[in-house]
């Protein structure tokens, strides 16, 4: 199954071309969007996402859903990239070691359980 808009957005991180969509009034969101939930604007452009963002909150998951069974324990974080926030799984760091305020970059990795593409966050 493909998810138009989302799939292109996710895979852009592979080529370091991560982006967000910005409405006519400057509100940043993740695609697909037709209407800005902040202001109702229907004009959007793709804009380059900053290369790294700051961890705003994080948890170490010990009891996963079946789709991440082999990945646990893992850290999931919500990261502020400025114009938009992104949620992803932290890789390249021991679970529980990345903290609020740390800088991370977004990339695409694979779930150890299913092999499916996952948005991952790497400490920078």
């Amino acid at each position: 199954m493909s998810d138009e808009g989302f799939d292109e957005w996710l895979h852009a991180f592979v080529a370091d071309d991560g982006y967000y969509v910005e409405c006519g009034n400057g509100h940043g969101h993740l695609p697909p969007r037709r209407v800005c939930p902040d202001c109702g604007s229907t004009e959007f452009s793709e804009e380059e996402l900053p290369e790294s963002g700051v961890v705003e909150t994080i948890t170490t998951v010990h009891v996963p859903a079946p789709a991440f069974e082999a990945d646990a324990p893992y850290d999931t974080a919500v990261v502020d990239f400025g114009p938009a926030r992104i949620t992803g799984i932290v890789v390249d760091a021991e679970p529980g070691t990345v903290e609020i305020g740390d800088e991370v970059a977004a990339d695409v990795g694979a779930s150890e359980t299913t092999g499916k593409d996952v948005l991952v966050l790497r400490p920078v």
Partner: peptide
């Protein structure tokens, strides 16, 4: 589903993110 579940967020994890925040 797209932005949270696929990023490993379970329900306890979502509330844990809120608790940490």
């Amino acid at each position: 589903e797209l932005f949270e579940v696929r990023a490993g967020v379970t329900f306890p994890a979502a509330y844990a993110l809120m608790a940490t925040a």
